[in-house]
């Protein structure tokens, strides 16, 4: 058979494994989720019926929805810039060829390897009042500590801190790889020109890291919406929803309240958010990034 004459077929064959997987597990569920959000919650006695935008109207009237939305915003603002900055700082630190860097790299990367549920169980005992590690360290030197997870004003912050700790090591790997790919000649040239270390970072290193930063940013934004494992262990969204996020609320709605249509409506809102963010990231930011 002459394959060359049939380039279309080959093309389709080549993308079909990925396409089939994407359609089955991403596109098809997204579309059915949308349709399910247009129906009422049914049961064998009262079958579900078409209700149009009712689920979305109910969302507007749901104070918990607004709380988790606001929380998610703070969570994103709290985790994304901080974990990226920390990742760059750690990568710069371990990029040099000093004794012990291997050990340091491993240490920075360890939080990433650990499963989030296990990590959350450890942090639960760090944060516990009176007997927790934090209180045992801080109280003897006279620092008054709040009830970290039990106080609505610190619960979300405590979760943000864990997320930064967990994610920074992962992002560091990408920055480290990018740094190692940078040519040493650049540094030598900068030295000849008499540029300070800070100027060199601001003018040379950082701009060259931008493609990596975009990639990391996309990941960080996604994670700020999908990383909720620790909530199950640490706060269950409490006290009074102070630390609940959209995805956790979707889980509660779908599996605790068995309200699939309402959970579908929430999911569509989440999808919309992520879509808009993706447009901004790829449409606006990417154009301003210098690729070699």
């Amino acid at each position: 058979m002459n394959f060359m004459g049939n380039r279309h077929v080959i093309g389709w064959l080549l993308i079909s494994p990925a396409a089939i997987l994407l359609v089955t597990f991403t596109h098809y569920p997204a579309v059915t989720t949308f349709f399910s959000s247009l129906f009422s919650r049914g049961n064998p006695i009262r079958p579900s019926k078409f209700v149009g935008a009712d689920q979305y109207l109910a969302l507007l009237d749901d104070p918990v929805f607004w709380t988790v939305l606001e929380n998610n915003l703070y969570y994103a603002i709290g985790t994304i810039p901080a974990s990226i900055a920390l990742a760059i700082a750690m990568a710069l630190l371990v990029d040099r060829a000093l004794a012990g860097t291997g050990f340091l790299r491993l240490a920075y990367f360890t939080p990433t390897i650990l499963p989030m549920i296990a990590v959350a169980n450890i942090w639960l005992f760090f944060y516990t009042p009176e007997i927790g590690l934090l209180d045992r360290l801080l109280n003897p030197i006279g620092i008054e500590t709040p009830n970290w997870l039990g106080d609505p004003s610190t619960a979300l912050l405590s979760l943000i801190f864990i997320t930064i700790w967990k994610e920074a090591g992962f992002f560091m790997i990408f920055y480290l790889a990018a740094l190692q790919a940078q040519s040493p000649e650049l540094k030598e040239a900068a030295k000849l020109e008499g540029a300070s270390a800070f100027t060199f970072f601001r003018r040379v290193t950082f701009p060259l890291l931008m493609p990596t930063t975009l990639f990391v940013l996309v990941n960080a934004v996604l994670n700020s919406f999908k990383l909720v494992d620790h909530i199950f262990i640490l706060t269950k969204g409490g006290p009074d929803n102070a630390s609940s996020l959209i995805l956790y609320y979707i889980y509660e709605t779908a599996f605790s309240f068995f309200d699939t249509p309402y959970a579908s409506a929430l999911t569509i809102i989440l999808l919309l958010f992520l879509g808009i963010l993706a447009l901004i990231q790829f449409g606006v930011l990417e154009r301003r990034i210098h690729y070699r």
Partner: peptide, 19 residues
């Protein structure tokens, strides 16, 4: 009783440690 929420999961440990 301490102020704020008291965690279900760690309470037993608090009791066992005499807190």
């Amino acid at each position: 009783m301490p102020k704020g929420a008291i965690e279900w999961g760690t309470l037993r440990q608090n009791f066992l440690e005499g807190k």
